[in-house]
Design a protein around this nucleic acid. Structure first.
Length: 288
DNA sequence: AAACGGGTCAACCGCAGAATA
DNA sequence: CTATTCTGCGGTTGACCCGTT
């Protein structure tokens, strides 16, 4: 029978997502839901395969994603669940609202595994390092003139910069908030996405950095158990021309249906209403 | 200052199973 | 029942950052 490829590779973009792509994806899902992932990118006008879109959404753009480092409690939960479930990352993630399986997997491999079995973790790390080095050496041999391909390729690589995103390009807080860590801006530069990177038009003068607390419960929370979302007061540093945003709760609602899709549709419908609320003036936001 | 090693995380790949025609 | 498509999952990789040598 043979399995159809997830997407025809020709003409589709791969690699890191641009802010514009994120915006398109979020906007589309907000309006229509994702529906059929495979068909969605075409409808949304994205040159991505559905799989890539789904991954980007579930691991990064979903509004209930909790960014920031894991708490000790979360780490303990992961450890104990891992003992019971093994590498069932999605099952573990189900017990940690706001955390994705990918994130948990990463944390396990980078922190927790070491804590559990330092010896094995070190060996695995060394093994991987050797592979990496081998590959790098092979590459250097083939193109010895390019000592620093990244720098040559894209001096404006956002990943090299500090967490910056144009407020104009941010989407209802999602995109800008999603850049709470430097890598989050999707700055990976691969040959396949170089061209697209050049098309991005970040306005480096008007940047807003959303504090990590944005994602913490007190600032923005979605309670999966009650299916309710709340945007609580969000403080932006006011030291220099700063502005406090959202003195009162911006929005709060709850859903009574148990259907996930309905819930998220409501989330997005509600998010649309936020468009009408006072927005952060880029000039008033200070780099932190 | 450059090279190197380790850490980190987003994204990709391929498979399995569910869903559908 | 079979073939095909879609989705979700877990493993792996690529590329950047940062501290150390």
């Amino acid at each position: 029978m043979g399995r159809a490829p997830c997407c025809e590779k020709v003409g589709l973009r791969r690699g890191a997502w641009s802010a514009e792509e994120d915006r398109i994806l979020v906007e589309y899902i907000q309006r229509h839901g994702h529906g059929n992932w495979r068909a969605m990118p075409k409808k949304a006008g994205l040159l991505r395969c559905g799989k890539s879109c789904r991954l980007r959404w579930t691991n990064y753009l979903r509004p209930d994603i909790r960014r920031g480092s894991f708490t000790t409690e979360e780490e303990d939960t992961i450890i104990s669940l891992h003992e019971k479930l093994g590498n069932k990352w999605s099952a573990i993630a189900a017990s940690l609202p706001g955390r994705t399986d990918n994130e948990i997997k990463n944390v396990w491999h980078t922190h927790l595994k070491k804590r559990m079995d330092p010896k094995e973790a070190t060996q695995a790390s060394k093994k991987r390092r050797r592979r990496k080095k081998k590959k790098r050496d092979a590459k250097n041999e083939s193109e010895p003139e390019r000592v620093n391909p990244q720098a040559d390729a894209d001096p404006g690589n956002p990943r090299c910069d500090v967490i910056e995103v144009s407020v104009e390009e941010s989407y209802s807080g999602f995109s800008s908030a999603a850049t709470t860590d430097s890598s989050a801006v999707s700055g990976d530069v691969t040959s396949s996405n170089m061209e697209a990177r050049e098309e991005e038009s970040y306005d480096s003068k008007e940047v807003a950095v959303i504090d990590e607390s944005f994602w913490l419960d007190e600032a923005f929370s979605i309670d999966i158990s009650t299916e309710s979302m709340t945007l609580a007061p969000l403080e932006v540093p006011t030291s220099a021309a700063g502005a406090a945003v959202g003195e009162e709760s911006l929005s709060s609602f709850s859903s009574t249906t148990g259907d996930d899709m309905d819930f998220w549709l409501k989330v997005f419908m509600e998010a649309e209403h936020l468009e009408d609320l006072p927005r952060i003036n880029p000039a008033d936001v200070q780099l932190i």
